Amino acid sequence: MRKDFDLSLYLVTDRSKIGDEVFLKRIESALLNGVTIVQLREKNLDTNSLIELGKKLKKITDYYNVPLIIDDNVEAVLAIDAHGVHLGSEDMSISKAREILGDGKIIGATVKTVESGLKAKAAGADYFGVGAIFPTETKVKTVLTSISTLNKIFEVTEIPIVAIGGLDVSNIESLKGSSAEGVAVVRAIMDSENPAVSASEIREKVDFYLK
C-alpha cells in the first residue's frame, strides 16, 4: 500500500549561502506556497549539526503537515523522527535502511535506469527520484536521464516518480504527458530572491502540466 505523501513540489534544501534563520524562513515561505515535501540535504554538516537543524525544520514542516525526508543519514532520521530517508546509489542500501527504520518510514531512491528501478522496488523503495532531466549545477557530475526512460521506469515498476535535475519554472512544460508526479528543485527556490513567488509559480506549472 502506498504511504501518504505528495510529490508535486519536492524541495531539496541548500543552506550553503545563508544562515539558519534565513534558511528556515525561506523554507517556511515555500511551504506556504505549494511545497508538498521537504528533503534536508546538507552534505557539509556533521550528524550532530544535521540533527540539530533537522529538529528545528521538523517543527515547521509538522506545522504545515508536510513530510520531512533526510538525505542519506538514517541515524539522523531516527533522532529527528523524520518521515523518511532518501538514498543514492552510493548510500546505505535500501534493504538495510528498511531493516533499521521499519515499514512506517518513507524511503526514496535515486534511480537512473530501468534496471536500478526494478532493484530499488524489490528492496522496498516507496518513491523514485529520477534524473537528472536537465544539466544541474548542484552536482559536479551530471548524468542525464531522458523523459522516455523516466516513463519506462514507471511503466515497469509502478513506483511514484519525482523528476529531478535542473528543473525550474522555465522547463516544467517538457514533462507534460510524462509519468512524473512532481518535480524536485533546489536552486529554483533556495537561491530565489523571492522563494514564496518561485514556489507558487513552480507549483502552478506542476498542477497545470502534470496533473
Rank of each mutant, 00 (worst) to 15 (best):
M1Y: 13
R2G: 11
F5H: 12
F5Y: 13
D6W: 00
L9E: 09
Y10R: 05
R15D: 09
I18M: 09
I18T: 10
D20L: 08
F23I: 02
R26L: 15
I27N: 04
E28F: 11
A30C: 00
T36I: 12
L40V: 05
E42V: 05
L45F: 03
D46R: 07
D46V: 07
E52C: 04
L53V: 00
K56P: 00
L57C: 01
K59C: 06
T61M: 00
Y63L: 03
Y64C: 01
N65H: 12
V66D: 02
L68H: 03
I69F: 05
D71Q: 02
V77H: 05
A82T: 04
H83K: 12
V85T: 07
E90L: 13
I94R: 12
G102W: 14
G102I: 09
V111P: 11
T113I: 10
V114R: 04
V114H: 03
V114F: 06
G117R: 05
L118Q: 15
A122P: 10
G124S: 11
A125L: 14
D126T: 10
Y127F: 13
Y127W: 14
G129L: 10
G129C: 12
G129V: 15
G131P: 08
F134S: 01
P135G: 06
P135V: 07
E137A: 15
T138E: 04
T138L: 11
V140N: 15
V143R: 08
V143W: 08
L144C: 08
K152M: 15
I153Q: 04
E155I: 14
E158D: 14
E158I: 14
I159C: 03
V162W: 08
I164T: 06
I164Q: 02
I164Y: 01
G165K: 06
D168A: 01
S170Q: 04
N171F: 01
E173S: 07
S174N: 01
S178C: 00
E181H: 06
A184F: 02
V185S: 03
V185Q: 00
R187G: 08
S192M: 06
S192V: 05
V197K: 12
V197T: 10
S198P: 06
V206D: 07
F208N: 10
Y209D: 03
